[in-house]
Design a protein around this nucleic acid. Sequence first.
RNA 1: GUGGGCGUAGCUCAGCUGGUAGAGUCCCGGAUUGUGAUUCCGGUUGUCGUGGGUUCGAAUCCCGCCGCCCACCCCA
Length: 459
Amino acid sequence: MALTQARTMPGVLELLPLDQIAFQRMLDTIRRNYERFGFVPVETPVIEYSSVLLTKTGGETERQVYFVESTGALGKHAESVPELALRFDLTVPLARYVAEHERELSFPFRRYQMQRVYRGERAQRGRFREFYQCDIDVIGKDALSIRYDAELPAVIYSVFRELAIGPFTIQLNNRRLLRGYFESLGIADGEQQMLVLREVDKLDKRGAEYVRETLTGDAFGLSAEVADRILAFVQVRSTSLADALAKLDALGAGPEALEQGRDELKEVLRLIHDFGVPETHFALNFSIARGLDYYTGTVYETTLNEHPQIGSVCSGGRYENLAGQYTKSHLPGVGISIGLTRLYWQLREAGLIGTARSTVDVLVTQMDATKLPAYLALAGELRAAGIATEVVLEEGKLGKQFKYADRAGIRFAVVVGDDELAKHVVTVKDLRRGDQFEVPRAELVKTLRVEIEQAAVMG
RNA sequence: GUGGGCGUAGCUCAGCUGGUAGAGUCCCGGAUUGUGAUUCCGGUUGUCGUGGGUUCGAAUCCCGCCGCCCACCCCA
């Protein structure tokens, strides 16, 4: 019989258990910090009505949406769009969720959501078709204080500090300020401002020359002088809080949007510091523009200082009205998202994270099949003490059992044979260090707890 | 959606100018019936992506198709 090739489609990430454990530890850390800051969990269905997801009718998003058809509906609408689709982010479902449950929710509504989303793009290195987003958003009713714009970086600081993947910088900008500045240069049209923003956003990736050429080219037709001023402007970065405030003040007077954006940014920067984020970990970056659709004010991007090639590991911003497509209520919000699948993948590629130790702490080996009741009793005792324990249930050579433990990433093996029974002791072997010792049977739990604790700290 | 590159063992690849398919690794067994990872010995692993063409003969040369990768677009 011809075998079917066992394979997954490109653009999905599937992990072996020890890697999955490492991934899950990251999810746990993010969740713990989100909850610590008072965000509440929400999950929404993977499948939504197409009509709900596609309200923005952004040509780009529509091209990336996976549609879903039930068997019965297959082929029934050759021309029209299928009724159902997979979500491509968590923000649009959030908008629908808030609009649908508006009267049952408390505002400001602070939710976190960590689920998979789907994008039908051509697979590429570090790009996924199925990936985790870990979002937090704060949604206000009618109005939402700018202070929440400063809270999110505080959460992100807390998350990334605990993830312990090296120094990082949360970079901030303000879309209103950018638009005000463009206006002062005579680029008043909203559409064109968007297009310029999109080019400017490429600065770090493609370089100043590339952006200058595009801006002065036929598509934009800007004068060399204006292009140069834009380039000089977007290269502004701050080195400290005082420096950031000084650079903002140095912008001087200008269109209303510019002054408003500047005031917002100043307040946000000051508050981030008050939230306890060290000024080494946040900075102004006038080239940050972000997603082109809904952001209106503050925008964020977080990068790892020692790995700039990884790019942004977390981004988000302020939006004026989240759910305008679904409700007449005015619901402004601010949100930020960690693309965990990509982050994990990049960190692994860069050698910054390895495999985790197993979730199994101890393997009770089977020295002698007739003593199985003793092994099961021993395992029960360990489990009651909160130690994750596996018992070998099949007969086999001890060497094979150790090999199994080693490959499975289980660090400690417990051996009980005639020698141990006679002496009322248990042999504990540390597979990682390669040594072993005997402990009195009665002290096993206490000893293993200490060993496991140490292993967790020392790695 | 647009442009470029590559398809040989589970994995990484060699095999180039045509002459019956190879290495490392992995896996399995043994050396070692109370000790893994290290060492030594032995063993398994292939429609050479696929269909056609040229040829006495094709993994190798030519064409179609499929798949994958990279870049653009866009984004986490």
